[in-house]
Design a protein around this nucleic acid. Sequence first.
DNA 1: AACATACTGCTAAAAATTTAGCAAGAGCGT
DNA 2: ACGCTCTTGCTAAATTTTTAGCAGTATGTT
Lengths: 128, 128
Amino acid sequence: MSRVKPELSRRERQIMDILYRSGAATASEVLARLPDPPSNSAVRTLLRILEEKGHLRHEQDGPRYVFHPIVPREAARRNAMRHLLTTFFDSSNEQAFAAMLDLGKEPLAEEELTRLQEMIDRARAEGR
Amino acid sequence: MSRVKPELSRRERQIMDILYRSGAATASEVLARLPDPPSNSAVRTLLRILEEKGHLRHEQDGPRYVFHPIVPREAARRNAMRHLLTTFFDSSNEQAFAAMLDLGKEPLAEEELTRLQEMIDRARAEGR
DNA sequence: AACATACTGCTAAAAATTTAGCAAGAGCGT
DNA sequence: ACGCTCTTGCTAAATTTTTAGCAGTATGTT
């Protein structure tokens, strides 16, 4: 079971990303958010292909299809995070965390810092 | 200046990832690490293309070329991190951090937790 | 009910990506 | 110096990706 998933093509990835950002979307919605918009027809074809390959499913909503990713966001997250960690951070949580802190232009809210701290405490307690 | 960079194709990305993991590599080294290895010739062509597009440069090392990414790792990191954050974590540092903690099979070392904590303290102090 | 609009399915074609072959040159060991 | 191996440059071809066109069907608006 669970055959190998050949990595997605450029457009396929763009579309999956959009879907993961919005949770679900129709063909036109996807089109609207595509960086380099092709025709509506082109987008639909890609959606159909992604569905055939088992990355999406669709539900009917009145006259149109609403597409959802099949792999749940949390699982996709984990994979993406792991990939990022190994590719750019030598699997170092610290480095990744540091990069995260550096990202935002706004300083982090005091509240947020507190919650992060709590997570660490919890990890300690649970022997994580 | 700085024209738009059309996103990389599948193979191009695989290759750039390898290069970012190893820092630099020859054609054969890249080939050896490719998941779905094509011919050596194919890899070289891709490397040449990536160089033309300005993603790589090469240095001669005796008889062979050693390829380096042009965009420094730290910059590429930031972009990748930002992309991950917006696509899968609604730009929430907390969620991303939580996912990070969940990733490792091994519990985090006490030492590492301490260092993470220090980063937070520092962020507080600096009004980050 | 008729019209305009917004979908879908399917198909063909264009464009891009990906692949590999072949000739030539450099380096290395015998 | 010879032959062997590994490299590159260039080119052509196969494959995949990406695009759009056209016909048909549903929706809903007047």
